[in-house]
Amino acid sequence: MKVRIDVDACVGAGQCVLAAPDVFDQRDDDGMVVLLVEDPPAHLEAATEHAALLCPAMAIVVDR
């Protein structure tokens, strides 16, 4: 699985951090998304996909 984020689209709602804290974080200075791992291991795939589904700004793209 490959994950891409679009920081320009992000609105800092933090849904991704709640859903997959091992994959996403938020920058301290502006609250925008940070990708911690580009290719999450198998056990984080479901959470990562859920994060992409929750993101209100469609700022997370998951390629399988």
């Binding site: 609105v11 933090g14 709640l18 974080d25 938020q26």
Partner: peptide, 15 residues
Amino acid sequence: HARLRRLLTPEFTVK
């Protein structure tokens, strides 16, 4: 909207 929201977002991060 984006500019203003970004100024506020650091106050509301999950952390």
